[in-house]
Amino acid sequence: MRAGLTLVAAAALALGACDGGGDPVQQALRETAATNQSATVKEGVTSAHASASHGATLGDRTFAASEAAMHAGMATASGETVDEAYIAKMIEHHRGAVAMADVALARSQDAEIRRMAQAVKDTQMREIAEMQAWKPAPASGK
């Protein structure tokens, strides 16, 4: 029962660790996470009740940790320029896709799902390597 509240609290803390300025989408995510966590704690809602009232299925709960980690990673990834921030955030986004593919590979019994998950993982890993190798273009002296 506490695991769900702990996950929500961890996500809220990770999102709240970001500075107050910056991307309005990140700010909205931080505010929503904090509001949801606060409401859950105030109401004393158990994770089982919260899951049932929010429609979280076994499938949803199976991916909850990888989703939370991805969102926290994206919220904290940054860069000095738009380009650098884009690369940092997309690396985290792709890592999330790899983590979700790993869950599907470990838990799915469907051969087609496992094939797609492996293809996603392979593609995302290649793209992560490509983004990690990216270097900003030198600034022109003009």
Rank of each mutant, 00 (worst) to 15 (best):
R61W: 00
P138H: 08
D110S: 13
D23Q: 06
E67Y: 00
G73L: 07
K89D: 02
G79D: 06
A52L: 09
A34W: 12
P24Q: 09
Q124E: 15
A104K: 10
T6E: 12
T76L: 15
Q37I: 00
V120G: 04
V25Q: 13
T57W: 00
A56N: 06
T46K: 11
A56F: 13
A117N: 13
Q132G: 03
I113G: 00
S66P: 00
G21F: 04
I113D: 02
A72Q: 15
G73A: 11
S47P: 05
A9W: 06
K121A: 06
A106R: 14
R61I: 00
L13I: 06
K121C: 02
K42R: 12
V25L: 14
G73S: 08
H54N: 07
Q26S: 07
S47T: 08
V25F: 07
E130A: 14
R30S: 10
R2I: 06
R107L: 05
K121W: 10
A117F: 01
T40G: 05
R2Q: 12
A72E: 13
A3F: 09
M90Y: 08
T6R: 15
D110V: 14
G44D: 11
G20L: 12
H49D: 15
G96A: 11
G59D: 11
R2D: 10
H49T: 14
P24C: 08
A68P: 02
D19N: 12
V120H: 11
D19L: 06
G141L: 10
S140Y: 02
E84K: 12
D19Y: 05
N36P: 00
R30L: 04
T32N: 08
M131P: 00
S38V: 04
A137T: 09
S66C: 08
S51T: 04
G55L: 00
S108C: 12
A34P: 01
S53T: 12
T81F: 04
R107E: 07
S51Q: 11
S51I: 01
T57Y: 02
E127G: 05
D23V: 07
M131F: 13
G96F: 02
D19F: 06
L15E: 09
A3E: 15
R2A: 08
A52W: 03
T57N: 05
A64H: 01
K135W: 03
A52Q: 11
K142C: 07
Q118M: 09
T57F: 02
W134P: 02
A34D: 10
A48Y: 06
G55S: 07
R61P: 00
A129Y: 07
D110M: 05
N36L: 12
D122K: 14
S47G: 15
M125L: 15
R95L: 10
A12I: 06
N36G: 04
A97L: 12
A33S: 14
A101K: 03
A139Q: 11
A133Y: 10
Q26D: 09
A17V: 04
G4T: 13
E80Q: 14
E130M: 12
S66T: 14
K135G: 02
A34G: 15
E127H: 15
H71I: 14
I128G: 05
M1Y: 06
Q27T: 08
V25K: 10
L29G: 05
L5F: 04
R115W: 03
Q109N: 13
V8S: 11
W134F: 10
